[in-house]
Structures are given as C-alpha cells and as structure tokens.
Design a protein around this nucleic acid. Structure first.
Lengths: 202, 202, 202, 202
DNA sequence: CATGAATGAGAGTTCATTCAT
DNA sequence: GATGAATGAACTCTCATTCAT
C-alpha cells in the first residue's frame, strides 16, 4: 500500500470520526466522507468499501489506544485517591461534552449488526458484540485492579467491587449518551462522581 | 377526523412502535410502516407525513401514560421498601430485555434533531430536547417525592437525594442502552439494584 | 396488481425486447429501459428489479407462444411437403433477418448465468439452462412428430431422424447467430434449406 | 518497442484470451486483465488502451495461425477420408468443449461494433465484419479445395459443394455456441459428423 | 518504463412524496 | 377516504482513464 496510502487511510478515519461523532453512524454516507475528505468516490472506495468498515477500523484503533497510563501510575505508587481524582476528572469532562462523543454512533453501529446479523468488521475477529463486550470486560478489570490497589494501600473501602464498578461504568455511559441529546446540567456528573468517591474512599 | 381515523392512527403508532423498538429510529422508513400496517402509501400519508411525526406522537402518548400509580400507593401508605422493590423489579426486567426498548430510537430521534437543527415534532411544542428534559425532570421529581415519603416514614436514609436519583436514572438508562447491543449479564442489574437499595434503606 | 399494472409490465417487456434484440443482453441497462419506456427509475423498479428478471419473463412469454399451429396442420392432413415448405420458409426469413433476433441476447443471458452460478429467473423454475434445454427438447420432439407424419404419409424418407433434426436445428441457429454480426448471403439459408429438403423428401 | 515489450503484449493476450473464453467479451474489464496479468493499471495501458484492441489483436493472431497443415497433407497425397476424419475429429472435440471457446466473445465483440458503428480494431483494416467474413470465405475455400481433392481422388461424391460446406460450417458453429450455455449431449456432434460423412463419402 | 493514487462518469437501487382514479 | 402508479432525488458502487512519482 505504501506510506502515502496509509496516510490517506488515516486521514479518512480522522475525518470520518468527526462525522460519526456529529451525526451518529447511520446518518453518515460514503458521500459525506468523500466531501469531508475531499476525495472522489473512487478514491475513497479504494481504501474503504463501506462506512461499516471505516467505523470498525476506527473502533479498533481507539480500543487499542487504551490505558497503560493507569498501570504506570500504580507502578509509581501514586496515591489511589489522586489517581481516582484524575480518572473521574476525565470522566466528568467527557460526560459534559456530548459533541465529541461516539456514543450514539457506537450504539447505532452495533445495534444495526444485531438486527442484520451481519459481521462486517473487516474479518479481523468474530462479530462486534464481542468486541464491545471485551471492552466492557477490559474496563472492568482495569477498575478492579485499581480498586484492589487502593484497598491494599488502605485508601479505599473494601466494598463489593463489582457492584461499584458496574455503577460507575453504566452511569457514566448513561450520562454520556444523554449528553449528546440533552443539555446536561453540570451538577449531574458532579453528583455522580461525588457518590462514587464517597463509596470508595475510606 | 372521525373515530375510525383515530383508530387507524393508533394502529399506525402501535405497528410503528414495534418497528422503532426493533430497528431504531433512523432505519425505519415510511415504506416499512406501510408494509407493517398494511396501509397504502397514500393511506399512511393521510395520517402522518413523516416518521418524525409518528415517533413524536408515540413519545407524547408514552410520556403521558406515566405513574399515577406511585402516587396512589403512597396515598395508601404502602411501605416505602415494598414500593421500592416493585419499582426496582420493573427496572431490572427492563434492563435485561433489550428487545422491547425504544432507547436507541429515542437517542437517534433526538440526536438527529440536534444536528439538523430542525423541529419536526408536529409543531406541538418547541423542540424535543425540552421534551426529553421535561421527562427527566418528571422522573426526578417522582423519585424525590418517593424518597421523601420513605424518609418521612423512617424507612429510607436521609441522604443527598439528587445524588442517588441521578445515579439511579443514569445507570438504569446506561444499562438499557447497552442491553440493546450487548448481552447483559443478569448480575449487572442485580448489582446496581443492590447498591441502590443499600444506599436508600436504613 | 390491476389491469394498468399488467399493461405497463407488458409495455416494458415489449420495449425491452427491442433493446435486447438490438444490443444483446449485457449491454442493456435499466436506465436504457427507463428511457425507452418513458418510465422513471422508480417506476420501472416497481415492476422489475433487474434486466435479468425482465429478460427471463420475456423468454417465458416467447417460449409459451409456441407451435400448436403445426399440430393443427397435421390434424388437418395437410401434406407434409407443404408444411415443410412453410416451416423452412419461416426459418429462411429468420436466418436472413439478424435485426430482430434475440440470439445474442439469449446467448449472453444464459452464458452469464453459467459463470455466475446465479439463478435469477424469478424463481419460477430451477435454473435457466434447463429452460433452454427444454426448449431444445421441445423443438426436437416437434420435428420428430412431424417427420414421422411425413414418413407415414410416404412423403418423407425414413432416414435417421435425430441426425437430420440436429442438423436442422443447429445449422439454423448457427446462421441466425452469424446473421447478427455478419452480412449473410441469401444463398446460405437457401442452400441449407435445399439440403434439408433433399434429405427429407422422397 | 523492444523484445521485452512484445513478450509482455503476448502475455497480456494469453491471459486475456482465457478471460474472454470464460466470460465473453463484454464482461471482461481492463481491471480484470490487470488482475489476471499482474500488471498495474498504467502498465497495461502502456500496451493496450482497451479490451477492444486486445481482442482485436487476439483475433488477428488466431486467424493468421490457420491451416497450412491441410495443404501439406493434400500435397502428401494423404487419402481424403483420412483427412476428413481428422478434421471432423477436431470439430467434434471443439463442439463438446464449451469452456475454451471464444464463440460468445466473438459474437459479442462483432455485434457490439454493429450497433456502435465504431471501428476500434487497431486501425489495421476497415471494420470487423469483413474480418469475420473473410474468415468465413477462407474456411469455405479451404473446404472447397479439400472436397475437390477428395472428388478428384474418387473418394468423395461430386455433390453441391457450397451446400454441404455451409451446412458443415454453420451447424458446427451452432453447436459450439450452444455448448457454452447448455450441456451438449455427446450424440449431437456425433450425429452431425455422421451426416456430413455420409453426404461426402462415396 | 511501471506503479498505483486519484478522478469522474454512470449504472444500480431505494424511498419520500405526489396525484389521478 | 383510500389506492397504488409514478416521479425524482440521493446513495452505493464500479470502472475506464489519467498522471505524478
């Protein structure tokens, strides 16, 4: 493919990402992406043959770009509450900013597959649900490690971990979803974060 | 519009509802609804001129069909924990059953409006966000009343109400969303509910 | 579908037939047929969803419009040589007139299916080859009956029937094919017919 | 154009030939030929600028590669029936093997020109019909010579030569055509050949 | 010379929408 | 009121063809 080709693919993904964030998955057409990237029909199709494929690759890239950062901090013995502050700070920002979120696009993408029964993710692995599910498992295990770390250091309560993790993950996702369609009062993320902190910190 | 007309409209809404639950909002076409209802093109257009309008009316109907039931129970002095059990039981069921949920359709419907800037909700009120927002406010006030009731009866803790309410509402919505695209482990709703109960019950 | 619809379908088939005869099968597009019939895209697709389907129906109609005429003549005890003259006269005309012939279109249509392996003949029966083959069998049995008739009347020689029939059918088809792409000298059909007559007549 | 260039052209023609035999003329694209030959777009276009041109050259090469062999045999006074056996044996094989035949491609190629009115055969001569026609004339004269030879040797009947030649050529072509789209019973070529022999041999 | 990136024309297809009957 | 025939816009996708490197 060559270096130029790889760069074009990357450019396509970037432009497409902004479209998906803005309009969700279903409403983005190959034509939209042509216009956004400045490529012609044929030019785009040379690299990707459907919005499914593009989205799928975007998801792959995003998912692989995950947190080693956290592990690094635990390595360095950063206090758990400090790490928690940092993570929840990021969550808060994300919950408030609906514009950059792929939430709806993700939902549309995976829900479409459900009803279709098709599996157009470039053939890299088996089906998208599992990809999402793996992501959930991964986030969960990350939190689990982190909470263990906090408990070991005597900084977190030794509560039912799965319970608090599910609560964190799904309320976070819930707010993100709604932030794309409804003005989210700043207090909402703040309250959720406050609750999480109270539940965790000794 | 005579009685017959109203019934036809109702039938259209019912059939369309099942389509929206299955395929989301964007993927349902007027043609789909023609087929599902058995109406001809012209026949359908006589009653509704777009899927937006149909969906909007469905939402109106659903939102108006809300809980006076709860008020009735509080009136009858039913113990708060019993009411809580009942509500959370319903929530649990809904979190597990992705199939019947309009979650995605709602998200698509309102998010489409955001990006369009259009306001095609039948002209009844100004913009859908506020409709959704009102719904949120309404649910919130319902829970607020209910928690007050429990606190007054000495059955609920007197904690920060807004905090727990946001947590309940958004984690519930978060799970519902994901239930439509990912297999949800039975334990997830159970854990969330367990947490809520622990947070509320004395 | 209604009477109007049936008429539109018929009109489509007629116009398409002239296109197929002129350009063969592969070179005719749905757009061509739109233009020829004066229908819009959507209008045409309402009735037929591919040139395959149209061609297939044309073939069905043509094949069903076959020779009961011959049977009638044998019934009426018309002398075999007279009937032979009439049939071969028709053959001669058809061999000379390349313009109205579907030969190439038929060849393209069925050869495309071979390589594709698809079977898009409206689902009415199993595959097109058999349809062609049946046609061959049918023509063959028609000639067989007819030659028997001539032999019984003492007007035809009692020669190897299958031999002469294959010769008739394939040389006729061969000339028809070439008549679409090459000027056919009038003498060619005449010579072929002359040979056939000599082979058959006592 | 050096020797290497000529070889590349030859390779292109060979690969293209197999494609034309498999898919006919119209269905073969420059892209197909790129893939089949392993050449890049630009690479292919350096040598040939259209499938028409490639096909045309293939035809030229094939037509020039004709029978001096027959002349040689007559020179050597090989008995006419032996030569006939050999020729008809080859015909039989060709009639049965639809797969390697260019029949359909030829038909498509020349029929396309008819309707187009264009003349894209590399500019070497005026129009393809005449090329085909010349080929017919050429085959005919070959047979004419051969039959004369047989008659002179007292091995063939002195019948109307043009008649039997047309019969041979067109029934042969007819079967070849159909062999590409229909299973041809082994008996069919056999019967045709049997008839020809009976007509020729004393 | 050869490559493959890119263009743009054009075919296929699907729907929202209108309108004569 | 209701039907379904018809329109036309928009999208998807595929190639022939060109051209900078």
């Amino acid at each position: 493919m060559g270096k130029k080709g790889e760069e074009t693919k990357k450019r396509i993904r970037q432009k497409a990402l902004s479209l998906f964030a803005r309009k969700g998955f279903k409403s983005v057409t190959m034509k939209d992406i042509c216009i956004e990237t400045g490529l012609s029909r044929g030019g785009l199709y040379r690299y990707y043959e459907s919005t499914h494929q593009i989205f799928s690759e975007i998801m792959d890239v995003l998912m692989n770009a995950q947190d080693d950062e956290l592990a690094a901090k635990m390595e360095k013995e950063v206090p758990a509450p400090a790490i928690l502050d940092e993570i929840l700070g990021r969550y808060e920002k994300e919950m408030l900013d609906g514009s950059g979120s792929l939430s709806i696009a993700i939902l549309e993408f995976y829900s479409e597959k459900q009803s279709d029964g098709r599996s157009d993710d470039g053939g890299k692995d088996g089906g998208g649900d599992s990809k999402l599910f793996r992501q959930y498992i991964c986030s969960k295990s990350m939190w689990d490690n982190f909470i263990s770390y906090g408990v070991k250091r005597g900084e977190f309560k030794n509560i039912d971990r799965e319970e608090i993790i599910d609560l964190i993950l799904f309320s976070y996702q819930g707010v993100r979803m709604f932030s794309t369609i409804m003005p989210i009062d700043k207090q909402i993320p703040r309250r959720i974060i406050s609750h999480i902190k109270k539940a965790l910190l000794v």
